[in-house]
């Protein structure tokens, strides 16, 4: 990212902040009781000194990371397997297409009923939700493998496993990485949503519930700001990782830097 772009981004954020501040302070003044951005930002900073909130962040991020990790460990091998066995994929595809569009948040009440351990319930819904983007992207990646490359290897006498590990999987890897990046965002949504629905000992969502019940809209918003920041940070880290690892892929597809 160039300096000029960074500057423009910062200017945009600052402009948004100022407009929000002015509208809330002077525009809607009497019609609505809502904390202005400056108050929220102040509380966002102060939350760093709140042990309850920090414990919540730890709990939420732990569920998030564990859920995402399990989803990767399940979805990537499954995607590779289905991608390399087209008849099986055709058989399973209808089930996948049925399960995929179910809004993951809607399965939280079911998970509460079925899974007796709170953390396990939360991790399960995170896994369920983040499975799909990784699986679907892996499948796309497996379909996208250059057939000439596969054929060449075969004609040199390489077996199917060698073709898989030397051509198919590396070629599909950038797609998997994109799937993981999308899943990371979804996993965070589910990590916080599950807490908002089910409560729990600690969590960003639990903190939001407590703040809401105590009439502290400023704290609710501040905790939400942190959740957003974690999402942005995860996205940046994963995007940087993709850029580093799969430079060749972007060259091939001609993606912009």
């Amino acid at each position: 990212m160039t300096g000029a772009r960074l500057l423009r981004g910062a200017a945009g954020a600052a402009g948004f902040f100022v407009v929000g501040e002015l509208v809330i302070r002077y525009g809607i003044g009497d019609d609505m009781d809502f904390p202005p951005p400056s108050t929220i930002l102040l509380e966002t900073g102060r939350l760093l000194a709140d042990p309850d909130f920090l414990a919540g962040v730890g709990a939420t991020l732990a569920n998030w990371a564990l859920g995402l990790l399990i989803a990767i460990c399940v979805a990537v091998p499954l995607g590779v397997l289905l991608g390399s066995l087209p008849p099986v994929e055709r058989a399973i595809r209808p089930v996948l297409e049925f399960l995929r569009p179910i809004p993951s948040v809607a399965i939280i009440p079911l998970a509460i009923l079925l899974i007796p351990v709170d953390e396990m319930m939360k991790v399960s819904v995170i896994v369920y939700a983040s499975l799909w983007p990784i699986l679907i992207n892996t499948l796309y990646g497996m379909h996208d493998v250059d057939p000439v490359a596969k054929e060449s290897l075969r004609s040199f006498g390489f077996g199917p496993l060698a073709v898989l590990s030397r051509v198919s999987v590396p070629s599909a890897a950038p797609f998997m990485a994109t799937g993981v990046r999308i899943a990371a965002g979804i996993a965070l949504v589910l990590a916080v949503s599950a807490e908002l629905v089910a409560g729990g000992v600690a969590g960003i969502g639990v903190y939001v519930i407590q703040a809401g019940s105590g009439n502290r809209m400023d704290l609710m918003m501040a905790a939400t700001v942190w959740a957003g920041l974690f999402g942005v940070a995860a996205n940046l880290v994963l995007m940087a990782g993709e850029r580093r690892l799969f430079h060749w892929h972007r060259m091939r597809t001609g993606a912009q830097s």
């Binding site: 009440p109 509460i112 709170d118 908002l196 629905v197 089910a198 409560g199 729990g200 000992v201 639990v206 519930i209 407590q210």
Partner: peptide, 8 residues
């Protein structure tokens, strides 16, 4: 453990 409501 904080909960969100009696129904849950």
């Amino acid at each position: 453990t904080p909960i969100t409501g009696g129904a849950v």
